[in-house]
Design a protein around this nucleic acid. Structure first.
Lengths: 340, 340
DNA sequence: TTGAAAGCGCTACCAT
DNA sequence: ATGGTAGCGCTTTCAA
């Protein structure tokens, strides 16, 4: 059996309550006793049992992350790997651990929510929803369960959320394309309903106002292969765009491949820019212009906010926190350089 | 306050013990009472508190994954994303959840180990060690803590481990290159000490026996950029290899980029093959030949074994479980096709 | 078949 | 300043 406070108490000839006090750094404990207890703890290599603590304090020290499996697993989306990585890092600084669950389908996801929060396994949740998830959010709200949404809460104004301003980000990158002299800028997004995509399309359209009459919005499935196929069709057309803003780096990779196969020069014949600024951007010949979302910043803000909610601390700032994006310009969009 | 078994008991007019029995599916409970209790549970939306259960049963229902941050975060290594993804999936089928921690440095990693297992936060650990980690493994053994190593335990014969046979895998892929007619096959690995790399180099060398006198082993840092630079040097040399087996897809990507920049045709002038078979392989022009590690298989075996250890069930098979690899041949190594 | 009660290891309150 | 003790919500033994 493992060492408990009772064992320590017996060996140090004090009460178990005193051991607990020493552990919590209670100032009222006499120095001599304190040292004696600490010595025994050290010797016995005592560590408090988090399970007992969790029960007693009604806090598990765990933050849950439930992600809906994207197309082809989370493996191929560096966003999630980044997210988890930064989350763990951020949490460890606050004495929290991360509990990850992946939901393969809608039904299962609800079950996980139930299991995770009704059983009080975790103290709070980080939500990442690619689409509006009304029922789940309402459920959490009804339970009064602490959670922060990474993304756009849409009509849920009361939900705490951390997000980029994807409308502005898309507007900026589209403007960048226009400034580079592209005349027919298109946008390659995901299917309608994916909030990130919808937001970025809105930004794209805003940028075009008064500058380009025709809006060229295309909807592709996720992944570089789908976008490669779609891009091939698009670029074969006689009225093809001369620049494409793409939803993410993977899809942009597909576009770049399609362009290369069709003999189009980047950035001269086709400008490309995308979102996420993953390591992939350095891998595309000459580099891919991409919007950096500052995932670390998103995560940091989200955890900060969540821990405040959990601790019931007053929240003075806005419920929606916006983390600025930055445009990392690489050669895939630098038409002006090429034409010099 | 939330609903407890006592509340249910009161409402159903039974004892709290009976409620517990109903929950555990105890057959001795009379049907009528059973139904009454279940009805109240349903109505009150009762869920047992996992914290109390964990304390009582001495089981948390959590499996820990501690990963040492690789170069540049885990984000850029799809292996970890895959690992986590499959782990979560596999665990959820066994009523376990995954607790992820990342250790940035050696010292911190030991601290996490302590926190995670001495405090009994998790019931078992999955270890992923890129290098021999003697002290940590000995510690776990001394504590009698359940864990399974994903990788090569080296001299720790008593450790339960799940791994590919990297020696054989490398031998096979090297043989494949030789069969394709390459005469100077090289190996681009990581620095010595990284067990996966060491194993694969050993396999590469075994394949060359009697077939190619000169062993061309190169050591690169991780990442496509480092390997691109190194590959550029290697390929500029007059005695350059005509084929490279590379430690992973990312590094292979760097090699492919270097080759392209030097005007070398793949697979005619340079054959490339690597390990991991990630989505990146489809992205490299024509496709990259790569060894598929069957991560899902690795994870499945590891979890299966770990849960047996945790439940103290007898383990009849070998302590070391080998999951077979398969070679996914794509055009980057198909020299014979090109020369037809 | 059911209920009463002990106890998992801890924190915190109330005594002294 | 210290000890005794209640109790977090649950499972399980023991009695009835």
């Amino acid at each position: 059996m493992r060492v408990t406070q009772r064992d320590i108490a017996r060996l140090a000839e004090v009460s178990q309550a005193t051991v607990s006090r020493v552990l919590s750094g209670d100032v009222r404990v006499e120095h001599e006793i304190r040292d004696r207890v600490l010595a025994v703890m050290q010797q016995k290599n005592y560590q408090p049992d988090v399970r007992a603590r969790a029960l007693r304090n009604q806090k598990s020290g765990l933050i849950g992350l439930v992600i809906k499996r994207p197309q082809g697993g989370i493996a191929n989306d560096p966003f999630y790997a980044n997210l988890i990585s930064y989350l763990v890092e951020e949490l460890s600084g606050r004495d929290y651990h991360l509990c990850v669950d992946v939901a393969s389908d809608e039904f299962y996801q609800v079950a996980i929510y139930d299991e995770l929060l009704r059983t009080r396994r975790v103290d709070g949740l980080i939500l990442v929803e690619s689409e509006a998830a009304d029922d789940r959010i309402r459920r959490l709200q009804a339970e009064g369960f602490p959670f922060v949404l990474l993304g756009n809460p849409l009509h849920f104004a009361e939900v705490h959320s951390v997000d980029n301003d994807n409308v502005i980000a898309a507007e900026e990158v589209t403007n960048h394309m226009i400034e580079q002299g592209y005349k027919r800028v298109g946008f390659l997004g995901a299917r309608a309903g994916i909030t990130v995509s919808d937001d970025r399309i809105a930004g794209y359209q805003r940028a075009l106002r008064g500058k380009q009459a025709e809006h060229l919005v295309y909807h592709s499935a996720f992944g570089s292969e789908s976008s490669r196929r779609l891009a091939t069709d698009i670029l074969k057309s006689s009225e093809r765009p001369d620049a494409l803003v793409v939803l993410d780096d993977f899809m942009a990779f597909g576009v770049a491949t399609a362009a290369r196969d069709l003999g189009l020069q980047i950035p001269r014949d086709l400008g490309i820019a995308s979102f996420n600024d993953t390591s992939l951007c350095e891998m595309i010949g000459g580099g891919l212009t991409s919007v950096n979302l500052n995932i670390q910043g998103l995560v940091s803000k989200a955890v900060h906010r969540l821990s405040k909610i959990i601790d019931d601390k007053p929240i003075l700032t806005d419920r929606r926190i916006i983390v600025p994006t930055t445009l990392t310009v690489r050669s895939s969009s630098l038409r002006s350089e090429v034409l010099k």
